[in-house]
Design a protein around this nucleic acid. Structure first.
Length: 722
DNA sequence: GACCTGCTGCGGTTTG
């Protein structure tokens, strides 16, 4: 083998030989050099099943064996976002470590107390843990952190792209900083990821104190990709032509049956609709069932069944109609084709989904994108006429081919997560001083955008006698208040993300899954769930249970959710598609026709030369040509000035309100720098788990730092008018 | 006009 192989310790070399690999992959060889030869932080980026885990752990384990720790504690820490991923990875790592005298401890909510107790008694080797379980260790065993992690020399963060700018990512960074503060030394950070948009920003998140010294290892090359974009219109007048959802289902049935595939349907509601249609087609044709629904509200049992059918090559062919449940890192093997119904919200997500197909080298990845558009009549909405969904689908594919991915969002205040970490920090130490908390969380940790004044306002908000989350003793020490104690004591505290309340759906004692409480249900009502039809027979409100039995008809339930954020670059690409004459070879004839229709309507509306179009006596269309955040900011500003506004991809539809003032004047005012109170009509600002404890002023600051962009407002208006 | 993720400790009973 190579120079890299020589740098591994003997027992690890022995394991590598036993695998009978022809050679180490290039990312593995590179990682061995970087990890062995220095102490810098590192990001390893390669596709799923690309050998990233071994790339990080072979050299890390080698170093542990060569230079055994002088202190007690786990030698290596691994943080993973999913229980299933931790279980998978711990089995793989156990195989490496079995003969090396290094224990491997998986640790999450489904791991038995006996394994956890063994780990606590003899902290050594590898600990694989979720962010929430690590949080629980800080809260329940705050005084033992030094003993448990005294030997820890590196932390590996898996699926790094999901751990950057998210609530959970901020939590992980905060916990790592707190760990470093207890140990009084730095711990090396190694991130693993398949899809990262901007290396510089990812580096800044991984190693905020020295982003320039974070090293990068990237897998080169991309396999062959087969692409198709199909267009459909709904609601034909001719009864002999099937409706679009049915036509799409028939196409999926005909082309996907007989192999393993993933169909990303975009929403849980749509998953239910298409699973039901495909089930019917199979029944109609007297063919065995091979299309199954998969989303987060379906029971664990059902999901395991579908995952097993996909993974096990001996089982019959299986297509999962799914949401992003099957986008993440759990191993379901290789699928032949990935279908995407409607445009996704991010290129990152499309790329991640596509990574499920064509994983073997000789086989191409296949993406079938379905764009479903409304049938036009005379008085249609401009958004239908512009075919926004189809154009976004093309934009996403073009950006995918350009190898662009959304960068992480720039640093925000994250005040909800800050509240969580303040409470956790106080619980860890039994009490803490304000200056100490501020130093660790806001100077060293991830809340660097929070200045002292804002930090004090947060403390005041959660120390308010009504809130009682924290209180101050006479010497200034901050302690948990009575409400705070209760909050932190309960296991639901550990997660930083919000989860809505749900009913459990039960048929004859068997649990089918869960339904959000927002569904208005009564006995006798019929619904589609888990790809089958049910009738409600009873509702037990106290137990939060809905009892159902099989039925012959039904409609899919509402699952709720808020619209996603679309990046500026995607919207810019959409506008360039309208304004060019390019044809895209991956589109079928119907899609080509829809595109030329969209382009001609774009021109007819005059959008080639202006961004402000009058469409009625008091109504206008504004082309903001910007993503969700900038467009939402202008929408709020115009709302505050009395207009009624509807937001779409890169557009606003604006109606004059009372007093009736010309839209152009309002835009000119903003363009000339007039200040607008975006929050004049008290829009909802409660989005995250601990937002309810904050004051309106803090909520406004938080929204301005993450969901709105006041700095761009003046410029957008200037561009609109020019 | 969306999706996903996570969870301790204790007391009781059963088993080897």
């Amino acid at each position: 083998m190579t120079a890299a192989f020589d740098k591994l310790s003997r027992p690890v070399q022995k394991w590598v030989r036993s695998r009978e690999w022809r050679e180490l992959r290039s990312i593995q060889a590179e990682a061995i050099h970087v990890i062995n030869d220095g102490n810098s932080d590192l990001i390893i980026s390669a596709k799923t099943a690309g050998g990233k885990t071994e790339a990080a752990f072979l050299p890390l384990i080698s170093r542990v064996l060569e230079e055994p720790a002088q202190k007690n504690g786990f030698d290596l820490l691994y943080i993973g976002p999913l229980k299933a991923l931790i279980t998978d990875q711990s089995e793989r790592l156990d195989d490496i470590c079995a003969d090396l005298g290094l224990p491997v401890y998986p640790w999450h909510g489904d791991i038995s107390a006996s394994i956890k107790n063994r780990a606590l008694k003899n902290p050594a080797g590898l600990l694989l843990i979720t962010p929430e379980s690590l949080e629980a260790l800080f809260i329940r065993r705050g005084l033992e952190i030094g003993r448990l992690f005294g030997a820890t020399r590196a932390v590996v963060i898996d699926e790094l792209h999901g751990m950057l700018d998210s609530e959970r990512g901020i939590q992980v960074r905060s916990l790592l900083t707190r760990l470093e503060c207890v140990l009084n030394r730095k711990i090396r950070r190694i991130g693993l990821s398949a899809t990262l948009g901007d290396m510089k920003m990812a580096s800044a998140y991984l190693g905020p104190n020295n982003p320039d010294s974070v090293k990068w290892i990237e897998e080169k090359g991309q396999g062959e990709l087969l692409l198709e974009l199909r267009g459909y219109s709904t609601g034909s007048a001719d009864e002999n032509i099937p409706c679009a959802t049915e036509a799409v289902s028939r196409h999926i049935f005909k082309n996907l049956r007989g192999s393993n595939n993933l169909v990303f349907a975009g929403s849980r509601n749509s998953v239910e609709v298409y699973s039901d249609l495909l089930r019917n087609i199979c029944e109609h044709e007297n063919l065995p069932q091979e299309f199954y629904a998969h989303h987060a509200n379906l029971s664990r049992n059902h999901r395991n069944f579908v995952e097993k059918r996909l993974k096990d090559k001996k089982k019959p062919p299986t297509t999962a109609i799914c949401t992003s449940t099957l986008e993440l890192g759990i191993d379901i093997g290789d699928v032949k084709c990935v279908a995407q119904l409607g445009a996704p919200f991010t290129v990152a997500s499309l790329r991640q989904r596509l990574g499920r197909s064509g994983r073997r080298e000789e086989v191409p990845a296949i993406l079938r994108q379905y764009a479903i558009e409304a049938k036009l009549s005379d008085n249609d909405n401009f958004s239908d006429r512009l075919r926004l969904g189809l154009i976004r689908s093309i934009a996403m594919i073009e950006l995918l081919l350009e190898k662009w991915t959304e960068p992480p969002r720039s640093e925000a205040l994250h005040l909800s997560t800050l509240v969580h970490q303040i409470l956790s920090f106080i619980a860890e130490r039994g009490g803490a001083f304000a200056g100490q908390i501020h130093h660790v969380l806001c100077r060293q940790g991830p809340f660097r955008k929070v200045d002292s004044e804002t930090f004090l306002d947060v403390l005041k908000a959660i120390g308010n006698p009504k809130t009682k989350l924290i209180e101050q003793s006479s010497n200034g020490l901050l302690l948990l208040g009575s409400t705070g104690e209760k909050l932190v004591e309960h296991h639901s505290f550990y997660a930083v993300f919000h989860t809505p309340e749900e009913f459990r759906l039960v048929s004859d004692g068997a649990e089918l899954g869960t339904l959000p409480m927002q569904n208005v249900l009564a006995p006798g009502m019929m619904l589609i769930f888990s790809g089958q039809r049910w009738i409600v027979v009873g509702i037990l409100y106290a137990e939060k249970v809905i009892q159902v039995k099989p039925a012959a008809a039904g409609v899919p339930p509402a699952f709720g959710g808020e619209p996603g954020h679309i990046h500026d670059r995607v919207i810019e690409k959409m506008f360039s598609i309208y304004q060019s004459e390019n044809q895209y070879i991956y589109m079928n004839k119907d899609a080509v026709d829809l595109l030329s229709e969209a382009r001609s309507n774009f021109r007819l509306m005059g959008l080639n030369s202006t961004s402000l179009v009058q469409v009625g006596e008091k109504s206008h269309i504004l082309a903001t040509r910007s993503g969700t955040i900038k467009t939402a900011t202008l929408a709020l500003a115009l709302g505050a000035m009395g207009f009624q506004v509807l937001q779409l991809d890169g557009f606003l539809s604006v109606e004059a309100g009372k007093p009736d003032r010309p839209l152009k004047d309002a835009l000119e005012e903003i363009a000339s720098g007039r200040k607008v109170d975006l929050f004049r009509h008290s829009p909802n600002l409660i989005f995250e788990k601990f937002h309810i404890h904050l004051t309106p002023e803090l909520l406004e600051k938080d929204a301005l730092s993450s969901r709105l962009s006041l700095d761009d407002l003046q410029n957008i208006c200037r561009n609109l008018l020019s």
